[in-house]
Design a protein around this nucleic acid. Structure first.
Lengths: 341, 341
DNA sequence: TTGTAGGCGTTATCAA
DNA sequence: TTGATAACGCCTACAA
């Protein structure tokens, strides 16, 4: 049986009130008393029961994050790092981080959110992989539960978010490839219902337009942000009668899949085919050749998002409440040097 | 304000007692009543307050896992998959998974464990990266908190654990390399205080002995289970006057670092140098060349561990309480074909 | 400066 | 078959 506040009180012949206030740093307790309380509480290894405190204060002392994934395993290292950032920031505020996974858009996801919200499991939620029409924002807003988002649900979204400017990033990537002489640049996108697809695809189109290149619908295909999806998409692209000389992928994982497909076909990356991704996960540094990408400060974004959520929960005003960062173009060998043809 | 049991009771003109029992499936409530309660509770979106329930039942309804890492970010994909397994199994039992990180062996780690245990934050804990002398096992045992371990603290450990037979695995790996003609096989190990080091290094020695090869202390070096550590260790090994023709690494991440170092030196992997790792993380499939490794069913082990923990918490007898699995030897190109010299 | 007492939302005991 | 009531451990108005 763990020590309770009563145990401490009894030992000191004081009331639980005094113990509680001494420990919480109220100033209406005698200094000598406080010292004794602090001392004894520590000796006895007293830690307040979180459940009791939660019940009383009506707070969960926890942030929640539901990883949107069909595969129950979170295979994308992007999320591992994202969660690490959330966890660290939560810990810094003495909050727990509750994590779970749910397939996006399905009933199970709804139920999980509902359970956490109605069961008062968390004081606030972090959302990611925003959808174009995202029921979660309204659901949470309607119930008054604070939340922050990695990315906007749509351009007019008025919730709290942090986002990397993928649109500008992809345009820069296309410009880079065009400057190397590429004219047939393909794009392996994300599912259309994801908000991020609009920006990344938009940036791709912007880039083509800026470079004076036409948009060839054959060169735009859909992946699912996984390695496998990228591989499958690249196989389709490379089987075209007139295949692309460069392939942009909506994220690094997809790009790594693309690289595999290219190697299957016996293409030499960086020479026969340029490939680039988005995210800047560590795995991209270790591919052969290393992956050109747009690097996003995931960990920092996660920490900052969590910090914003904590403010929101405390009822503080947030300024700014929407943050746009610039991803960093990291040119490595997978995009190759200038083309000779 | 979320719906409470009182709201439901008032709406139905019943007592909270009846509501509680109807929902918990007690059989001393009229069938008709139960139907009405179920119906209305669902309509009203009633979910019991976890805090209140915890307080009353004196349970946290949560499993805990503290990731042992110096780097606050968990960079090893092994752990991402491990956590996914824990999370899924926890969810299957309607338990939360609480995660945090702490640098192994330091005061901060102790405090975190103490906070979770004394604050009754979790009903049980999952331990990994066991140390030779691991204070955690005694700490938890002394406080009667159920726990399960990924791996044994030492050979005579009598706690509940699941482990892959790394000793046999590494011996098999050495045998494989020896059969290809390698005679100078190096080993990049883990810190000596980790329990896993004893087995992996032991298996390496077993393998050499079985192949009739001498143990050369120069060829045994220490890494830290990270890519960077592997890279540094390999640089040392490859700078030897008489460098190894094959390098075994204590885990895949280390092996990937070894591969980088080899490529820095202009060596062709699989021809000039054979490399193999341990774990079977997905990244190893995507290196160039793909990494030979011992594949361990992390996800399944995690689920099984969590399931065992749930039994333990329920006070059930566990049989078996210690499980040894065989890792699978996955031969890919990094270990190359037969040697001609 | 300290203590008393009520209640947060549940579950469990006992009586009706 | 149902209901009143007492905890669980903590915080906090209010009283002393």
């Amino acid at each position: 049986m763990p020590t309770t506040i009563h145990d401490v009180a009894r030992r000191l012949n004081l009331s639980i009130t005094t113990i509680s206030r001494a420990l919480d740093g109220y100033d209406d307790v005698a200094d000598a008393t406080r010292q004794r309380v602090l001392q004894v509480a520590r000796e006895m290894g007293y830690v307040p029961s979180r459940a009791a405190r939660q019940l009383r204060r009506n707070r969960a002392d926890a942030l929640g994050y539901i990883l949107p994934t069909h595969d129950p395993r979170f295979t994308d290292p992007f999320f591992a790092e994202f969660m690490a950032g959330l966890g660290d920031e939560a810990a810094a505020h003495n909050l727990d981080l509750l994590v779970s996974t749910a397939p996006p858009g399905e009933e199970a996801e709804r139920q999980l959110y509902a359970r956490w919200v109605h069961g008062r499991r968390v004081d606030g939620l972090v959302l990611s992989r925003m959808r174009r029409q995202d029921w979660r924002t309204e659901f949470l807003a309607a119930r008054g539960l604070p939340f922050v988002c990695l990315g906007r649900a749509d351009a007019s979204a008025d919730h709290v978010w942090i986002e990397a400017d993928a649109r500008a990033g992809f345009a820069a990537l296309v410009a880079h490839l065009a400057s190397l002489g590429h004219r047939r640049i393909a794009y392996v996108g994300a599912p259309a219902d994801l908000a991020l697809q609009a920006d990344r695809h938009g940036g791709y189109c912007d880039g083509l337009a800026a470079a004076g290149l036409p948009i060839d619908p054959d060169l735009v295909t859909e992946g699912d942000l996984t390695r496998r999806g990228g591989q499958a998409a690249a196989r389709r692209l490379l089987a075209l009668p007139n295949p692309p000389s460069a392939i942009l992928a909506a994220n690094d994982l997809t790009a790594i899949g693309v690289m595999r497909a290219a190697q299957e076909c016996g293409l030499v990356l960086g020479r026969d085919l340029a490939v680039a991704g988005y995210d800047g996960i560590e795995a991209g540094e270790h591919t052969q050749p290393a992956l050109t990408t747009l690097s996003v400060p995931v960990y920092d974004m996660a920490r900052r998002l969590a910090a914003m959520l904590v403010c929101l929960i405390a009822g503080e005003r947030l300024d700014p409440s929407q943050v746009m960062l610039q991803p960093e173009l990291v040119i490595r060998d997978s995009s190759g040097g200038p083309r000779s043809d």
